[in-house]
Design a protein around this nucleic acid. Sequence first.
DNA 1: TGGTAACAAACAATCGTTGTAAACTAGGTG
DNA 2: CACCTAGTTTACAACGATTGTTTGTTACCA
Lengths: 149, 149
Amino acid sequence: MKQPTGGLVERLKDNGLKLTPQRHLICQLIETLPGHPTAEDLYEQATAVMPSMSLKTVYSTLYELAGMGAIRLVNVGTGGFRVESHLEPHAHLVCRSCGQVTDVPVDPVADADLSVLEQFDFVVEQREVIFRGLCRECGLRLSGEGSGS
Amino acid sequence: MKQPTGGLVERLKDNGLKLTPQRHLICQLIETLPGHPTAEDLYEQATAVMPSMSLKTVYSTLYELAGMGAIRLVNVGTGGFRVESHLEPHAHLVCRSCGQVTDVPVDPVADADLSVLEQFDFVVEQREVIFRGLCRECGLRLSGEGSGS
DNA sequence: TGGTAACAAACAATCGTTGTAAACTAGGTG
DNA sequence: CACCTAGTTTACAACGATTGTTTGTTACCA
């Protein structure tokens, strides 16, 4: 079994989708850009290389990739979703000031007793853990502004 | 023992805000409506009683209540935020088919070792756990449609 | 070579939300 | 009581993110 680490392009083809230049570029960008880009981020980067790229194409391609499980689209409440290409279970830190999203390579729910869920007859397919607060920079900046002068 | 005004109205007054008829109604609705209403839900219910109610007033009041910590506004990725008047730590079940949000009275992160967070210099103020999947009704409905018994 | 199906582009429309400015309301003052 | 002021609500326009529609454009096949 090959681990599709950088295999977005492969995944597209495996799922019967054509590898168009637009899709190729979007896949490359997803694998290249650090952090959790938004659709808009990808669009900006894409138009720098391929000016004719449509924002609609970015959205369509993201939904195609998400539909085949190659990426995840997460909504952390900062307006718009973000592309998650790192699929192992992990948590997110979301800064309430700058909106930055950081991966925490730990699954806080892993050891939890989830037997309570059974009584809800709810089929869990995915879970999401978000820690909201202030990142280092925003913490320093805000406390500096507040007490300074 | 039903509290006629509930706690939200008190909180408003304690925070120096006037208890206008609009705010009173919104507070009542929040305490009355089951589940996790959206701003739009509240607006619908409110206009049924007070037709002049503006959607903007609903939003403003919600942000005022949230600002004083009387409610929480959670975004579970179903478009728009939802009002959470139940503030104890708990998780959410979100159905990917019908969008229904259900409280799970358990805090799966409670026992987790969060010392990893220290290395990120991130001040956690709040946490959110979401289980995504299919609720009972949607699970039955979809499997019924799919396999056609 | 023309036909066809998949795809991308342009652009308008939609949804949830927010900004603006005008209008209203309650309480205090003479 | 008419008037002032601060806080509040309203109508309405605007906004950012996303989606629908329509019209090309492209690759491929008989």
